[in-house]
Design a protein around this nucleic acid. Structure first.
Lengths: 205, 205
DNA sequence: TAAACTAACTAACATTTGTTAGTTTTGCCA
DNA sequence: TGGCAAAACTAACAAATGTTAGTTAGTTTA
């Protein structure tokens, strides 16, 4: 005992969490392979060997960062799936969640696009499995939107890929426009992705 | 002399070119940092030291692969810029070129998104400079489209980012759909990006 | 045929890197 | 205050990595 006095501040992040956040920032900037434990240690303000009092190895960091994010998306999809929203509303919710995750976890989110290749076989499978499930859920919702007559009937895989591309790249755009209001960003992305897909623009009604 | 007898086949690629292509494939699959010269050598069918008869160092490979692609885009933009097409036609041409480059140089194109971070300072600046110029040209054309009244007036930076996201991610989609006809892919991407952006869908006319 | 060049090979190098062992410091609580 | 656990430090390791040196075999040129 106890967290309060040991860490000086009541809500102070655990050392482990601090390490993960510094790791996310470095992995993003330099890539996982190009980031070494001495750099990470320096960022944390400690010697390299001391990191191992809090983590078991380097890959564990990448693994947890990726899985933490994957869990968020899995949860987002589960909530949307079990809701009673209509397809277009479901799509909007997914986009809202994606924008929020991007704003709240910019560094970790950025790792989702390319760094998972450095995972060992088993965690890689696990990660890709979650990602595939998310994509399948997304595809299903897009299909529902089309079948309900709300959207143009373009190839659903191309629509899916284009939509996810925009969302997956968002962290990069957001990093250069941190001042942009989150609500406004969310609205514009929805306009771009949803109204852009809609058979008839809302404005003509 | 001469290339013919030395290489057995008249149109045989130079060893240097072969190395670059293997490098592109490995850099894409594993990342630049995670690919070592012994792996590359094995892929080429030679010992690591022998590579240095054809290249001067590892980074040169990445540098040339990235610059080769950057030149393609720079040329594409220059041609479009000096053409007499209208803004929407210009946009279509950029998309056509992008799809073609992606199909013809899938591996090298994939490196554009993340691997440039591993360049040394000077080549990195050079690369990012070309990329920025391309983005500026693209932004200008989107702006022209909007001002000509062809497109919705959404934030041009968001439209730019969303469009480029789709194009930049295309290599990933294409890799899983190699059978998809290039012309058809081009058409669908245009529909998605251009008709999707258009104020009134063509279908209602 | 002799000289020159190309491109392969083996061996080895200096660094870098992730990680461990062993030790010391720190701060809480009895 | 003395004991204890957490967490820091120093030192060192084994492996991996990019690259160079020196050599050799084969091919082209003079």
């Amino acid at each position: 005992m106890n967290l309060i006095s040991r860490n000086t501040f009541v809500l102070m992040k655990s050392k482990r969490q601090q390490i993960k956040e510094h790791a996310a920032r470095l992995f993003r900037k330099q890539g996982y392979k190009a980031t070494n434990m001495r750099q990470l240690a320096e960022a944390v303000g400690v010697k390299a060997a001391s990191l191992y009092n809090h983590i078991s190895n380097k890959e564990e960091l990448l693994q947890e960062l990726l899985m933490d994010m994957a869990q968020l998306f899995t949860q987002s999809m589960a909530e949307v799936h079990s809701s009673s929203l209509n397809p277009v509303q479901k799509l909007e919710r997914l986009i809202t969640d994606y924008v929020r995750y991007t704003v709240e976890h910019t560094d970790a989110i950025s790792l989702l696009t390319g760094e998972w290749v450095h995972l060992a076989d088993d965690p890689k499978k696990e990660f890709l499995n979650l990602r595939d499930n998310y994509e399948d859920g997304f595809r299903q919702i897009l299909t529902d939107c089309m079948e309900a007559g709300h959207f143009k009937s373009i190839d659903v895989d191309i629509a899916l890929f284009s939509t996810l591309s925009t969302l997956r790249w968002l962290y990069s755009w957001y990093s250069k426009h941190k001042d942009f209001d989150q609500q406004e960003l969310e609205k514009q992305i929805k306009t771009m992705l949803i109204e852009g897909l809609r058979k008839q623009p809302i404005s003509i009604f």
